[in-house]
Amino acid sequence: MLKQQFARRFLSICAAGLRTRRADWDRTGLMAETETKKVEATPAVFEPKIVAFVCNWCTYAGADLAGTSRLQYAPNVRIVKLPCTGRIDPLFILKAFEGGADAVLVSGCHPGDCHYTSGNYHARRRWAIFRRLLEFTGIDMRRVFFSWVSAAEGAKFADLINRITADVRAAGPFERTNPARRRLWK
C-alpha cells in the first residue's frame, strides 16, 4: 500500500517536473510565447514581453556578466543574439512586433568599441531614421528602446531591463493598438 502510494507520488513528481521543464523551455522560445493564443487568465500585474536584439560582443557579454554576477533582473526580456548591431535589419523589429512583442530593445557596443569597427555606427544612423518611421506609422515610442551596454556593464544591463520592464508595464499591453501585429487569421 505504502509502496503504491510512494510510486504514485513519485510519478506525479516526475510528471510535474516534466511539465515545469516544458513550461521553462516554452518560455525561452520567442515564438512560443508570443504566439500563444489562449490566455487563461489576465494576471493581476501585466507582464510585458520584450524582445532584445543584442550584439554578441558587448551587450550579450554584459548580460552574461549580469548573470554570472547573480544580479536579479526582470524575466520579461527575450534575448536574440546577433554578431553585431550592424546586422540588425529593421525587419527584425517589425517581425518582433508582428509576433506580439510589447516592446523591442536594440543594444550593442558603445561608439568606438565595435568588434567590427563600425557596425554600431551604421546601426545608429539606421535607428535614428527608422524610429521616426515607426513613430509616424503608429508605433508608440514608449515601446522602442536603444542602448549601448559594454561587456563590463552587467549592472547597467540589469538596470536597463528593469527600467524598460517598468516603463512598458506602465504603458500596458501593446496587443490592441500594435499596427504591425499579425492578427490571427480568422
Binding site: 522560445g29 515564438m31 512560443a32 504566439e35 500563444t36 493564443k37 509576433g99 499579425r182 487569421w185
Partner: peptide
C-alpha cells in the same frame, strides 16, 4: 503558407 509555432495557415 504562413506558419507560426502555434498555428499555420495556407493562403
Amino acid at each position: 503558407d504562413e506558419a507560426t509555432r502555434a498555428e499555420s495557415v495556407r493562403l
